[in-house]
Design a protein around this nucleic acid. Structure first.
Length: 562
RNA sequence: UGCCCGGUCGUCUAAGGGUAGGACAGCAGGUUUUGGUCCUGUAUGUGGGGGUUCGAAUCCUCCCCGGGCAACCA
């Protein structure tokens, strides 16, 4: 990545960077190898972006590498479709993995690890049902009890385990458990299940296996096999660390170490794959890439740039305390980048006709306007100007307050890149609705060569009616009505879907764009002047252009008038 | 009520015994042919009580609050 965002200039280190520097300094490691380990059972979201940025960023910073490793140990929920989308999202974010790996690549080695544990009397085959295991597990305040199968001999265990692999037993009838301590204060150390029987095909290994390792059996060993130096995960895995270390020690593997950081939470949205899945499956949204979703694909479709997302991930920091990041920070990052790269265009969202009474009928003039005042290299474009224009209905007020810098009877404004006009008259229909505005233009006030001496405080965007073309705009609002839907649902004993904002999508189908919008490519970021940043929806066509509002412009006027 | 984490402006995040700083959000100005951008200024914070120390956000201690932990999910 070549761009340097402010957050990348930050000099303070987060706690993981401090650990790495200490490890490097003390010679514990002389390189840094991280991994991003998604389970291919859903789409990536902005929380994953934080993890991706952290893992890849750390490796980049210390001259190391990052593996992309799919944690595919549960074949019933995982698919190649998810694998492909995850790869696409990581690439789109701008990261390149050193190796593309799968936990399933290690199934044979993991099986050998299990055999070793059995031979060392550290694991046993348990014939208990899942209910029985749960019942004897104890509670956080009460110790569990030993399984009746706990004292089987290594020989018997090895035989049984081999036969589990051979497919001799039905699903759910037997598991391989670690023999640790049923009275441990850490529930995960109470003889955790290492292998379970699943007569299900795997998206990579097909029918080769009918026993699959659990997360704990697979993750740490995969890290160790790859020689991952720093295995970074979220806080909820903290209790797993003891088991992670136990397995690495007992199996005498490469000493990968696990470090936990607080996952990202954002206001007015949810960040769990399970809940996002429900939004999709229950059709609360248009799919994983619905522009209101906090998924990477949703943000992409909405018009967020990878640069903005990376910048955001750098700014939110990495720590261990629970957090809930204000959506406005993400929006700030979007505006900051989009301001630099988006092409300015004029689009009238709610048109009202404006007639320039002293401009000859049928006559037009091509005016020039900058594509982006922040970037002169983007050049200029031509905009047709004529007698009949559309302006924004909101830009006219019959009885306007003094601070209203727009149009009203007798008031003058600048039409962006065109002339200053003065309002002489206006017309309303029987319902009192404004139908037409009459103005006269000042010929010597032309943009760039204004000698009129008229001071117009306001500048309006506009389009020439005969040249304008109709487009559709989609305006999005927060998906939920409350700041923390998951939390509040828990507290109020409701379902998080009860808090869905039913007005999170508003379609504007009577918007009129200047000609330059018409032929623009589908991956172009726009700023519709005085309105916001817009990005063509994936279903937009040349015949019917549809744009998603990424984020509005900051609007001091609207804010003050609240 | 057991074990493990954590608690610094509204929200994030620094300061690791020596001036509590930055960002976003807010507020007040300036510039501006986008009420955008840019620029300037400004308010707000160490959960509480004890201790150690010349000096504590930082070390000790008690308390309070928040989160996690009883899936053959990851």
């Amino acid at each position: 990545m070549s761009d340097t965002s402010p957050s990348e200039e930050r000099t303070s280190k987060n706690f993981i960077e401090e650990i790495i520097e200490k490890d490097l300094q003390e010679g514990r490691h002389n390189t840094v190898l991280t991994r991003f380990p998604p389970e291919p059972n859903g789409y990536l979201h902005i929380g994953h972006a934080k993890s991706i940025t952290l893992n890849f960023g750390l490796a980049q910073k210390y001259g190391g590498e990052t593996n992309l490793r799919f944690d595919d140990t549960n074949p019933v929920t995982e698919t190649v479709e998810f694998v492909e989308n995850i790869k696409h999202d990581v690439k789109w974010l701008g990261f390149e993995w050193a190796r593309e790996l799968y936990a399933s690549d290690y199934f044979e080695q993991l099986y050998e690890c299990a055999i070793q544990l059995i031979r060392d009397s550290l694991a046993y085959v348990d014939d208990s049902t899942s209910e029985e295991i749960a019942a004897t597990k104890g509670t956080p305040t009460r110790p569990g009890t030993d399984s009746p199968y706990r004292s089987r001999t290594p020989e018997e265990n090895e035989d049984l385990f081999r036969r589990m692999r051979e497919g001799e037993f039905p699903e759910g009838t037997r598991t391989l458990r670690a023999r640790i301590d049923m009275s441990s204060s850490n529930m995960l150390m109470r003889d955790p299940v290492l292998y379970r029987i699943k007569h299900a095909p795997h998206h990579r290994t097909g029918d080769k296996w009918c026993i699959y390792p659990t997360y704990d059996m697979a993750h740490g060993q995969s890290d160790a096999i790859e020689k991952i130096t720093h295995s970074i995960c979220t806080l909820e895995f903290m209790p797993h660390r003891e088991l992670y270390d136990w397995l690495i020690e007992k199996l005498d593997l490469f000493p990968s170490r696990q470090y936990e950081f607080a996952r990202l939470n954002m206001s007015y949205t949810i960040m769990s794959k399970r809940r996002l899945l429900r939004l999709v499956e229950e059709n609360h949204v248009d799919g994983w890439d619905d522009p209101r979703m906090p998924t990477i694909s949703g943000l992409r479709r909405r018009g967020y740039t990878p640069e903005a997302i990376r910048d955001f991930c750098g700014r939110i920091g990495v720590a261990k305390r629970d957090n809930i990041i204000d959506m406005s920070l993400l929006e700030f990052c979007a505006r900051e980048h989009l301001n630099k790269i988006s092409l300015r265009r004029m689009v009238v969202f709610d048109p009202v006709k404006l007639v320039i009474t002293n401009w000859p009928e049928g006559q037009f003039e091509e005016l020039e306007s900058e594509n982006n005042p922040e970037d002169a290299s983007t050049g200029t474009r031509k905009i047709p100007f004529g007698r009949e224009l559309y302006i924004e209905r909101q830009d006219f007020m019959e009885d306007a307050p003094k601070k209203f810098f727009r149009l009203g009877p007798g008031r003058s404004v600048r039409l962006k890149s065109a002339f200053i006009i003065t309002c002489d008259d206006f017309f309303k229909d029987d319902n009192g609705r404004l139908t037409e505005i009459h103005c006269r233009y000042h010929p010597d006030s032309k943009s760039g060569s204004d000698t009129s001496g008229i001071k117009a405080k306001g500048t309006l965007h506009w389009v020439s009616i005969p040249h304008a073309h109709k487009i559709e705009l989609r305006e999005y609002d927060r998906l939920f009505k409350v700041e923390n839907p998951a939390d509040q649902a828990k507290q109020e004993e409701k379902d998080f879907t009860d808090y869905i904002n039913l007005e999170s999508l508003r379609v504007i189908d009577d918007a009129w764009a200047e000609p330059a919008v018409a032929g623009d490519p589908s991956d172009q970021y726009f700023q519709f002047m005085r309105k916001g940043y817009y990005f063509p929806d994936k279903l937009s066509t040349l015949e019917k252009q549809v744009f998603n509002r990424t984020v509005t412009l900051r609007d001091n006027w609207a804010r003050k008038n609240k």
